Amino acid sequence: RYTFRTRGPEQMKRVVEWARRQNLSYRVEVHGDEYIIHAE
């Protein structure tokens, strides 16, 4: 189980790509310009 905090969509997309390659399920929360990605 991982939690990532990123700023801006570019970093968020990179984390999502990584999670997909690992076959993890993930969800993204948006708080202003901060993205929180939960993957497991």
Rank of each mutant, 00 (worst) to 15 (best):
R1H: 13
R1Y: 11
R1N: 09
R1D: 05
R1G: 11
R1I: 11
R1W: 11
R1M: 10
Y2F: 11
Y2K: 03
Y2H: 05
Y2T: 04
Y2V: 06
Y2N: 02
Y2A: 03
Y2W: 14
Y2S: 03
Y2D: 01
Y2G: 02
Y2L: 09
T3P: 02
T3F: 08
T3K: 07
T3W: 06
T3S: 06
T3E: 08
T3I: 14
F4H: 02
F4T: 01
F4A: 01
F4I: 12
F4P: 00
F4K: 01
F4Q: 00
F4M: 03
F4Y: 05
F4L: 04
R5I: 14
R5E: 03
R5V: 14
R5M: 08
R5Q: 05
R5A: 05
R5D: 01
R5T: 10
T6N: 01
T6I: 14
T6A: 15
T6H: 02
T6G: 06
T6C: 15
T6E: 03
T6K: 03
R7H: 12
R7K: 14
R7N: 11
R7S: 10
R7E: 07
R7T: 12
R7I: 09
R7F: 11
R7D: 07
R7A: 08
R7C: 09
R7L: 08
R7Q: 10
R7W: 08
G8D: 15
G8R: 14
G8N: 15
G8A: 14
G8C: 13
G8H: 15
P9Y: 15
P9K: 15
P9R: 14
P9H: 14
P9M: 14
P9F: 15
P9Q: 13
P9G: 10
P9W: 15
P9A: 14
P9T: 14
P9L: 15
P9D: 13
E10K: 08
E10A: 11
E10F: 05
E10I: 08
E10D: 11
E10W: 06
E10T: 08
E10S: 08
E10V: 07
Q11A: 14
Q11S: 11
Q11T: 10
Q11F: 06
Q11H: 10
M12N: 01
M12Q: 02
M12P: 00
M12T: 06
M12S: 03
M12V: 09
M12I: 05
M12Y: 07
M12E: 01
K13H: 12
K13I: 11
K13M: 13
K13Q: 13
K13R: 13
K13V: 08
K13P: 00
K13D: 06
K13G: 06
K13F: 10
K13E: 12
K13Y: 10
R14F: 09
R14T: 08
R14K: 13
R14I: 13
R14Y: 08
R14A: 13
R14S: 07
R14W: 09
R14L: 13
R14Q: 12
R14D: 05
R14V: 12
V15W: 09
V15Y: 10
V15E: 00
V15L: 10
V15G: 01
V15H: 03
V15A: 05
V15F: 12
V15Q: 01
V16K: 03
V16I: 14
V16L: 12
V16Y: 02
V16R: 02
V16H: 02
V16D: 02
V16G: 01
V16A: 03
V16W: 02
V16P: 00
E17C: 08
E17A: 11
E17L: 09
E17V: 04
E17T: 06
E17F: 05
E17M: 09
E17S: 07
E17Y: 05
W18T: 01
W18A: 02
W18Y: 03
W18L: 02
W18H: 02
W18C: 05
W18K: 01
W18F: 03
W18V: 01
W18D: 01
A19F: 09
A19S: 03
A19H: 02
A19P: 00
A19G: 00
A19L: 15
A19R: 00
A19T: 03
A19E: 00
R20T: 12
R20S: 08
R20I: 15
R20G: 04
R21F: 06
R21T: 11
R21Q: 13
R21P: 00
R21S: 14
R21L: 12
R21M: 11
R21V: 07
R21W: 06
R21H: 08
Q22T: 06
Q22Y: 13
Q22M: 15
Q22S: 09
Q22N: 15
Q22A: 10
Q22R: 12
Q22V: 06
N23W: 04
N23C: 06
N23I: 02
N23L: 06
N23R: 08
N23M: 07
N23H: 11
L24T: 01
L24W: 09
L24I: 05
L24Q: 01
L24D: 00
L24K: 03
L24C: 04
L24F: 10
L24N: 01
L24V: 03
L24A: 02
L24Y: 10
L24H: 03
S25K: 13
S25Q: 12
S25V: 14
S25W: 14
S25A: 11
S25R: 13
S25N: 12
S25H: 13
S25G: 05
S25D: 10
Y26P: 03
Y26R: 00
Y26D: 00
Y26F: 12
R27S: 12
R27E: 09
R27K: 11
R27L: 09
R27F: 12
R27H: 12
R27D: 06
R27I: 13
V28P: 00
V28T: 03
V28A: 02
V28S: 01
V28I: 13
V28K: 00
V28Q: 01
V28Y: 03
V28M: 04
V28W: 04
V28D: 00
E29H: 08
E29T: 09
E29Q: 07
E29D: 06
E29V: 10
E29I: 11
E29C: 08
E29Y: 12
E29L: 07
V30S: 07
V30F: 11
V30M: 12
V30N: 07
V30E: 08
V30K: 14
H31V: 13
H31S: 11
H31D: 14
H31F: 12
H31A: 10
H31M: 12
G32K: 05
G32A: 06
G32T: 04
G32R: 05
G32M: 06
G32N: 08
G32Y: 05
G32I: 04
G32H: 05
G32D: 09
G32S: 05
D33T: 09
D33N: 12
D33C: 04
D33A: 08
D33Y: 07
D33S: 09
D33K: 07
D33I: 05
D33P: 05
D33R: 07
D33L: 07
E34N: 07
E34K: 05
E34M: 14
E34A: 07
E34P: 00
E34Y: 14
E34V: 13
Y35H: 04
Y35D: 01
Y35E: 01
Y35C: 04
Y35A: 05
Y35R: 03
Y35M: 05
Y35K: 02
Y35W: 10
Y35I: 07
I36H: 04
I36Q: 02
I36N: 01
I36S: 02
I36A: 02
I36T: 06
I36Y: 05
I36L: 08
I37L: 04
I37W: 02
I37F: 04
I37Q: 00
I37G: 00
H38V: 13
H38T: 14
H38F: 14
H38Q: 06
H38R: 07
H38A: 03
H38Y: 15
H38W: 11
H38G: 01
H38N: 05
H38M: 09
A39S: 03
A39N: 00
A39K: 01
A39G: 02
A39I: 15
A39P: 01
A39T: 13
A39E: 01
E40G: 13
E40Y: 15
E40H: 13
E40I: 11
E40F: 15
E40S: 12
E40P: 04
E40A: 12
E40K: 08
